[in-house]
Design a protein around this nucleic acid. Sequence first.
DNA 1: TTCCATGTTCCGCA
DNA 2: TTGCGGAACATGGA
Length: 263
Amino acid sequence: MPELPEVETFARYFASHALDQKIVRVDVRDERILGETRKDAFVRKLKGQSFTGVRRHGKHLFVLTTGNDTWLHLHFGMSGDLAYYRDKKDEPRFARIVFAFEGGGHLAFEDMRLFGLAEIVSSPEAFIEDRGLGPDPIDPSFTLKRFTELLEGRRGAIKSLLMSQEILAGLGNLWVDETLYLSSIHPRRPIDRLKKEEVRAIFTSMRKLLRDVIERHSRGAPMPAKSLYEHREVDARCPRCGGSIQRMVVFGRTTYFCPGHQR
DNA sequence: TTCCATGTTCCGCA
DNA sequence: TTGCGGAACATGGA
């Protein structure tokens, strides 16, 4: 379940379970999760090291190791997850990489659909630069002014822009829909026809939503009953305006919205 | 059996 | 140059 709030949750999980323990074994169960990286090189870089800290940018997680200039980069694709456990019988079914630590703990990087990626990178900054990723929307330095600048001179549907990682890094299909639902903006609204106060509404709703979802994940709390998330179904009744939830395709993705209040 | 899935990339077309 | 539609990737789950 990996968009920005989920990856932030993974980052915290990683930090609270898997830091400062010597990696005694690296089991790559399916090499396809390594992308272009060769398995022996991957194992050589990590075995005998410890993880010492985590960082996140958008949907990307970076873990610093005691090796010089060695960061583990994880992307969770559509179905990636982390699981820390001591007893081997608790290993997840779709574990693709298992790190075994001195002391008996294990961290599995699981990913049923294999769209995820694990690789070694020299630094998060270099990776972000190479990939051309946009700013992270909950970074303190990301302001309404910067958001407004991102929209300048652009055309097309607002949903497409919010989904584009080179513009803004971290939102995906679910939380873009939720952001626009909260902002009362139609997913296909042309960017150049957004009023100033609508841009502000999107910015505010997006940041509040992302922080709220992270907080809910940390408590294991469900989304509010009035969220679109709980009503992603054609003809469901909109809990905000009583309208009828509809579905369409935008940016190649199934999009739920309420035509009653999203204009 | 068929459709759908929280992501990304590549290609062709306008 | 920008934006968009479609397909591909891999593997379930309903």
